[in-house]
Every structure is written in C-alpha cells, then in structure tokens.
C-alpha cells in the first residue's frame, strides 16, 4: 500500500523497488536538438510538397513519400519521444513490430494495384 503523497517512500529506491511509485532519475538533454529536429521536419514536409508538384504520379513517387515519412517518424520517435535515450531492448520491443506494420501498409498498397486489373 503506497501513496503518492507519502514522502517517506523513495521514488528512486533501487533496493526496495516499489513498481507503483518508482521512477528513474531524469535529466534534461537541452533544447538545441529539439529545435534542430523541428527545422528538419519542416524541411522534409516542404520537400514532400515540392515532389508532389514537380514529379508526375507514379509508384516511384509513392516510394519517395513513404521513405520521407519514415525519416520523419525516426526523428519524432527518436528525439521527441526520447526513444534514442531508452534501453535497446525497450526500443526494439516497440520499433520492430512497427517496421512490419509499415511494410504491410506498403505491401497492401502495391497489392491493391492488381485488384483492378484481374
């Protein structure tokens, strides 16, 4: 029985570990990286829109859009969601299933292309 307002409980205690209150020590990684990633994400979105108008529609263009989407996802998950500072096992647990999912979306997109022709 623990209470959040109980000051006698050490929230960082590693020896008498209590999963209901335990949190790791946190420290800031600064704001420089955050703003850098913002400008990168903005730039990638501008590149997306530029490709939309310059290049005629094709599967090659779709692959470019999906690739740029994945790059944006890496920056959002890595920096904004702090995934690059997490333990490798934890990051793998989340990222590996997502890689299969993105593959599945792309696969069904190509698959649908054949439905109309058969």
């Amino acid at each position: 029985m623990s209470s959040h307002s109980n000051h006698n409980v050490d929230i960082h205690d590693e020896v008498n570990y209590d999963p209901t209150v335990w949190v790791p020590h946190t420290h800031s990684h600064g704001t420089k990286d955050i703003w850098l990633k913002f400008w990168i994400l903005l730039g990638l979105t501008v590149i997306d829109v530029a490709f939309y108008f310059i290049m005629p529609p094709s599967m090659a263009r779709n692959i470019i859009f999906i690739a740029l989407g994945i790059v944006k996802a890496i920056y959002i998950v890595g920096t904004f969601m702090h995934m690059k500072h997490e333990k490798l096992g934890f990051a793998s647990m989340i990222i590996i299933p997502m890689m299969f999912i993105i593959f599945f979306i792309a696969w069904m997109l190509f698959e649908g292309n054949f439905w109309g022709t058969i």
């Binding site: 069904m108 997109l109 190509f110 649908g112 439905w115």
Partner: peptide, 9 residues
C-alpha cells in the same frame, strides 16, 4: 492499409 489497398484498386 485498407485505404492504400482500396485506393490502388
């Protein structure tokens, strides 16, 4: 996934 498949059909 549904969107991609239906759209490209």
């Amino acid at each position: 996934t549904a969107y991609g498949a239906i759209r490209y059909s």
